[in-house]
Each structure stands twice: as C-alpha cells, then as structure tokens.
Amino acid sequence: MPEPLLEVDDLRVTFRTRRGTVTAVDGLSFALAAGDTLGIVGESGSGKTVSMLSILKLIRDPNARISGRVLFRGRNLLELTDRELRDVRGRDIAMIFQDPMTALTPVYRVGWHIAEQIRAHEKVSRQAARDRAVRLLAEVGIPEPGRRVDNYPHEFSGGMRQRAVIAMALACNPALLIADEPTTALDVTTQAQVLDLMRRLRETHGSAIVVITHDMGVVSEIADRVLVMYGGRAVERGPKREVFRRPRHPYTWGLLDSVPRMAGPRVRRLPMIPGTPIGPLDLPAGCGFAPRCRLRHQACEVRPELADAPTGGTRNGASEHVDACWLPAEGRAALRERSREESRG
C-alpha cells in the first residue's frame, strides 16, 4: 500500500465517570488510502462514532481522554492546536452525521449553510459562494437548485436534507469524508439514492470515505474495506470481498447472518446474536465478545489481538484480512455452519 491518507494507530478514548474510567475505544488501528472507502460496522455502543469524532477532536466532554496517533497526510491530528485543527475540519476532512433533520441550524437557509462552509476555508465573495452552493445542490440532485438554495432546512424532506448536508460536506473537496450512519434516518428508497450519490461523488471528487454503519447492506454497497468493531475494539478487518466471503470472527458471522436474504430458502426465524451489546462499563478482561459467543472456550479469557492468525502462523500470506479470535485458523467455515445450525435451534 502506498503512503496512506489516514493512519490511525492505537487510538484509545476513555471517559472519566463516577463509576471509574471507562474505555469507549480500545487500541483501534487502521489505515486508509486516498480514494478508498472503509466501512466501520458494529452495533450501537461499539465505539464507531466515538472513534471518528475523536479523530477530529470533536468530543467536547472534558472527561474524555484521547491517546494514540492519528496521522493525516503525515500530521498527527491529535497534536494540532484548535486553530490548525479548524483548518483541517471541513476542508481536508468533512463529516456527515446521522440525523439530517437536526444537522442544520434551523434559522438559516440551506444555501447559507453551504456558503458558510466555503467561506470558512476560502476567500471568496458571498455571491461566488452562493453560486457554488447552487452548483453543489445541482450536483447532489436537488431539483431547481436555484430556487431551493433559498429554502430553509425544514422545507426540505429528509432525503433532500441529507443530500444538502453531503453537498455542504463536499463544498471544499475534502480528501476524506467521514459519514456517520448517513442512511440510517432515511427510508429505504432514499437510502439507496444517497448511497448511489456517495458512490458517484467518490468518483468525481476523489475523496476517501469512512462510512460508519450498523448495516452490513450499506457496507456491501459502498465499502472497499471493512472494519468490524465490538465493545470498542476492532475484531475483524479486511477487504470487503474477503470479509463477506470468508468472515472469520464469530461476531462478523452473526452480523452477516442476521441480514434477511431475498434469495434462497426462506428461514423460519432470522438468526440473531444472543444477548445484548456490551456497554463500555462492563467490558470483560478477555475477549469482549466472549459472553455472547457460542464458541467461547478457555483461551477467550485472555484478550486476543488483531492478527492474521492469532493462534500462530500465517494462513495465506496476505495479512490484509485480520481478526481477533482464539479459534483455530483452519476450519472456521465449518464452525460457523455449526453455530448457525445451533442458533436456529
């Protein structure tokens, strides 16, 4: 891989609380090449959003402590001053949030928001910024952009608002776009349109994208690479094809199996992962997923590291697909089949 655009190394986010220090993100590492799309998957509370917010130091909680290294174009973002960071935010790294309904300041027009973004980073006239806002709205598929630019956010539908937010995020041609659950708050047809839009924009703007989602469907649509998180830790990481074809971690199996399928025989009951996601307060000392894992054994009491084959040796020489599980590297497919049978009961 050439010099990566973004390299996250041992990112750790902890919060001081009344019940002691809790770890929301624990030793997260990954790299992202320019123009690549990474999908971060996991249930609520797995640390996806917190990790991405901490990259731009957008966590305002005074009790939060962030450590590790976040190299963006060779600069450690965690060591930048507020002023320097402000130049990175929005210009080099843009972010889209989950709920487009509340993401825009309700008292300002849509065009105003986009123009504010442009004028925060470039010295352009009001009129020029507005013209660019109209072009951007046209680009993301807003009909009649010349008129819509003067609408207020509440006059847009949810899908249109998310498009407007995307237009705003892309206003300064960021090298990296972080999209936090960009489609979760939208209905299904709008979801598909927004994903399609993001794919198209990746071609035209050349931005690398990090998509945070709990939806395997979204990942399969858009990502090149996948990072699966559980309990604040990465449990599996690899190219999308590999992860979808040969998922290794039992948690990934569970995520994949719980997606309803259109083809094939109809299942009586959709398989699910037993138990509920753990919160950062009750993380076990060993493997975080062990309490919900059907295949846990003695070794799981020690925390496994992300590795090609944690139990030793290499599987196929390609170390791009890694996971954190003590199960023997060989024969996982069979184990997965077995546990799937069990889960159907």
Binding site: L56, L58, D82, R86, D87, V88, R89, G90, R91, A94, M95, F97, D99, T102, A103, L104, T105, P106, V107, E116, Q117, A120, H121, V165, M168
Partner: peptide, 23 residues
C-alpha cells in the same frame, strides 16, 4: 446536532456561539 455539524465544518467557536447557538 447542528452545533456539532458547524464544528465539523471548521467554524470558529466564537462564530458557533454567536451566529448559531445565540441566534
């Protein structure tokens, strides 16, 4: 949320406070 959006846009804290939140 809109304050977080504004922050992610690279808007200065003072502008966020006055133009967004105070408004």
């Amino acid at each position: 949320d809109y304050v977080r959006t504004a922050r992610a846009k690279g808007i200065s804290e003072r502008r966020i406070l006055i133009r967004h939140a105070l408004r």
